[in-house]
Design a protein around this nucleic acid. Sequence first.
DNA 1: GACCGATAATTGTCTGACAATTGAAAAGCA
DNA 2: TGCTTTTCAATTGTCAGACAATTATCGGTC
Lengths: 249, 249
Amino acid sequence: MKTELDSDRDYSQQIARTIRDAILEGKLPADGRLPSESDLAAQFNVSRPTVREALKRLAAQNLIRTQRGATGGAFVNRLGFDEAQEHLVTTATLLLSMNRVDFETACESRFALERACLPLACARRAPAHLAALRAEIARQGTEGLSDEDFCASDVAFHRALVDAAANPVLSWHLAGAVEAMQPLMNMITFTARSRARIVALHGALADAVAARDAAAAAAAMDALAAYTLELGGQIRARRARPAAGSATG
Amino acid sequence: MKTELDSDRDYSQQIARTIRDAILEGKLPADGRLPSESDLAAQFNVSRPTVREALKRLAAQNLIRTQRGATGGAFVNRLGFDEAQEHLVTTATLLLSMNRVDFETACESRFALERACLPLACARRAPAHLAALRAEIARQGTEGLSDEDFCASDVAFHRALVDAAANPVLSWHLAGAVEAMQPLMNMITFTARSRARIVALHGALADAVAARDAAAAAAAMDALAAYTLELGGQIRARRARPAAGSATG
DNA sequence: GACCGATAATTGTCTGACAATTGAAAAGCA
DNA sequence: TGCTTTTCAATTGTCAGACAATTATCGGTC
């Protein structure tokens, strides 16, 4: 590992990049321990706070974890799907909010992506997947469910759907895309009537997957996408002239 | 913004999380300036190095950028698609390499995702998109092209394909998925014969998109996926018993 | 042999300081 | 007045040394 740094540039950034590349190239195996902060400081010929800043950068990317104590130190993280998921969602959420992506574009992307898992899900769905789908549908139909819980169940339903494809990489991508939409979906307030329709569409989707009918599943997904877009359009129209409907209810 | 921290826990992590949430919730607008490190240290009642570690965490996530000088400070980053893309690729690449995802799984995921853009691409492709596709196909057919350049052109071709769907969010997801596969794709060495076949498959894909024939495009994509899997299988078989073919050639 | 305290290694944090950078204000000059 | 130069102040980047907190290990005691 290179230990020489360009002068008059950000040391901690260079150090972080050096270690990151070493990890990416496999020179530092997963769960391997990095030298102590003091040792690294001596190697790179910088002070310990500078090394620490570099390590914090890596920790922020989930590349390493630190542990205190005698046998402590910084260890190369075995990046699991869950942690990577969290990261993906953060990035995607920020991307959506900061670039003023409109609801239609985000929605289109999300459903186009999710449709990609349907053929695989139909081919491979196991009883456990179907049970998870049914359970969420049942939950969504219960009276008095809060909007928050309904949204959470919606996410869980779609998560179960993509998991039915039995491809962890695909699940990672798709679940990230779905979860990142959550802040935008939360803007949609559901009436009892729209909830019923969504539950019906979910049911059609689950039925199609259960019957291994990819075409029917795609059709149900299209219908769900169309209805979601419609709801989004209604909300936008209501916000455009808020005085029209809010006074008399 | 909360300035109280749980004791006996990692201060810099808590501070980073607090500021991150404030950014995600829009309390800190893009390009807005954060308080100076000294001010933040006073607000959170910690020392400046601790604040700096928190800021470095955020900088590693591309959430902020720092600038020295009189009017310097930490500014909320306007996260663009390009920077987010780089981040996505890093995470996805790491995920693939660290979880020993086999070639088949990664390939399946990648092509399933990419197929999601075909209907939109067929509906919206503009002349510029088609020209980009043709240009890359032409480049891939040139004699004496290095493996590296061929792979780069392959990535560019698929990038142009997903861009044809004219949905930046979708492009971000899909281009990230394609690029993350690059290290795995590089393991495949192309013979002249396999190159010709890939170029032919690319041509069929471009033709289908040009003709706005989504079904034909999906079929071409399936064929490309199947052939990629076949190549991967050949490589794996060759590696399983390397003595068989390497000695005499 | 089992339990318990001292010990050493390591990260987490603090204090204070200095260097480097950079925009802005002040001073000087035509 | 208007322009140029100088000075300055604010801010980040870095350093040094120190102490606190944590934790595995080693040695001692019962």
